[in-house]
């Protein structure tokens, strides 16, 4: 049951026995909980309900997280304590500085562009006849894995040398040729390649931004809109003084959520360039240092850095939410 299953029937059997085992554990918990009644028993029931969760979180998140932070102060093999040296490397090594620079570009561009595009699109299609269809088109990339998205866009960016009868098979280079230019090695030329990878995540995240913002736009009370209308405002004034202020708290949530997702971007970079040609980002570099370069300490430091970078974004988000609640 705890061995590697290699044939399909074995795999299905293993899955079913795992689910049965889980059901049995749940059954025991519920059975014991069922025997406790009254206000005093409440306490026992609550702890029983929380027991599996606390165990799983302690072993699966809390301990590993603390352990990684601890490991980030050790050398490549994880043996010798070296203080903040790994962090020093991240902020001084030229390769690592490229990684940091790229991560900053990602985190600045993706949330703002994805949110802007999502907001504009949500307003454009709002209450139109094709609204739900139009939204599905933009939302669909959310359901596609970043690996598949990487493949889709790698094909868009495909390059064929500019010689004789060779035809372009990537649409982007074909458009460049149609416009009279020469085909470009889009995924190799830095820093253009990083920008083109960023396009992929914007393509994915704009749908998320649009969906959340669209719900927020629809929540604006009609009488406010109608009052503004009676005052004779035009479309731009409506956007500036009604729509934008109304959805502003939601914009903050979307920006920060997309920002956090961007910070952890890994699949796209790995699938499209493998982090080569100066396109690596922190999450990709974490993987590369840990598994390919065998530098556990540096890998742990990069993971910890990721954690540290998430905190201010979340903190800002929570603060903004509380402020808008208080209003």
């Amino acid at each position: 049951m705890f061995n590697t299953a290699s044939t399909t029937p074995e795999k299905i059997l293993q899955m079913l026995s795992a689910l049965l085992l889980f059901a049995a554990v749940m059954g025991v918990i519920l059975f014991i909980a069922g025997r406790f009644g009254g206000r005093k028993g409440d306490r026992v029931v609550a702890y029983l309900y929380l027991l599996p969760v606390v165990l799983l979180l302690a072993v699966g998140l809390v301990y590993p997280g603390l352990r990684t932070i601890y490991q980030s102060f050790f050398d490549a093999a994880g043996d010798a304590f070296i203080g903040f040296d790994n962090y020093g490397t991240i902020f001084s090594d030229p390769d690592q500085l490229t990684v940091l620079r790229n991560t900053v570009i990602w985190v600045v561009l993706v949330p703002f562009l994805a949110t802007a595009i999502g907001l504009v699109y949500a307003i454009l299609v709002d209450k139109s006849r094709f609204e739900s269809f139009a939204k599905t088109l933009v939302f669909l990339p959310m359901a596609i894995s970043m690996v598949a998205a990487g493949v889709i866009w790698k094909f868009m960016y495909e390059y064929r040398p500019d010689q004789g009868t060779v035809k372009q098979i990537g649409l982007v280079n074909q458009v460049i040729v149609w416009l009279g230019g020469k085909p470009i090695q889009l995924l190799i030329d830095s820093p253009l390649n990083t920008l083109l990878l960023i396009v992929v995540l914007i393509w994915i995240q704009a749908g998320f931004a649009m969906t959340i913002l669209s719900a927020s736009i629809k929540a604006i009370p009609d009488d406010i809109i109608e009052a503004a209308r009676l005052d004779g405002v035009n479309a731009w004034q409506m956007f500036r003084s009604i729509t934008l202020p109304s959805v502003q708290p939601t914009v903050v949530v979307v920006l920060t959520t997309v920002g956090i997702a961007t910070l952890k971007v890994f699949d796209i970079v790995r699938t499209m360039t493998g982090g080569n040609f100066k396109t690596s980002v922190v999450a990709n570099e974490f993987y590369r240092q840990t598994f390919n370069a065998d530098n556990q300490g540096l890998g742990a430091a990069l993971a910890t850095l990721l954690f540290l970078l998430v905190i201010p974004i979340v903190w800002y988000n929570v603060r903004q939410l509380r402020r808008s609640e208080a209003r």
Partner: peptide
């Protein structure tokens, strides 16, 4: 259900949302 330590425990679970997977992978 009311039980001692509820608020602090819930806050802890809520805060764990922000832990990036990367931090947990190697020890796991």
């Amino acid at each position: 259900i009311e039980f001692p330590g509820k608020n602090i425990l819930f806050l802890a679970v809520f805060a764990l949302q922000i832990v990036p997977l990367q931090v947990t992978l190697i020890p796991l």
